[in-house]
Amino acid sequence: MRKYITTTLAMGLLGAFVLGNASIAMADGYGTAGCGLGSLVFGNKPGIIQVLAATTNGTFGSQTFGISTGTSNCKDTVPSVVSAKAFIQANREAVAKDIARGQGETITNLTALAGCTSDKAVGSELQKDFKQIFPTEKVSDIQVSDSVVSMLQAHPELACHTLS
């Protein structure tokens, strides 16, 4: 019996090692979130947030998502030009698809954030402007967000109050 116990213990340690390894390998890219060991956010590397932070040229880089006093700078969901741009940058891949499709969840949320009155009208307008917003795939997230906001501003009939 003792043999079994020793074996079990040894395997347990081995298991922990493998588990740990798997988690770390995963943390190099996406997907550190999840329950258990996976939801241990790696230092200043919380998965996609950090990835997005890197790709949006520091718009989010200085932000943390803590709740406590002084560190809660996470105010990207209140209608404003800054919030609208941050939203577009963080959701760029989905925004591109929805603009091409003339509708979608990111269009509806952007409409709300920009204070416009109709997501249908916003979707239709941005779909028309697709080539101007995305002239090539190389255009940066920040450029995309700037173009979308100026497109919306250029159309008074969309009544995007937040952006005026």
Binding site: Y30, G31, A33, L40, G47, I48, I49, L52, F65, G66, I67, S68, S72, C74, D76, T77, F87, A90, N91, E93, A94, T106, N109
Partner: peptide
């Protein structure tokens, strides 16, 4: 471990 506040769109994009 701490509680964190993150716009839901990050969650949707990730998951």
């Amino acid at each position: 471990a701490t509680f964190k506040q993150i716009p839901y769109y990050y969650k949707v994009r990730q998951y």
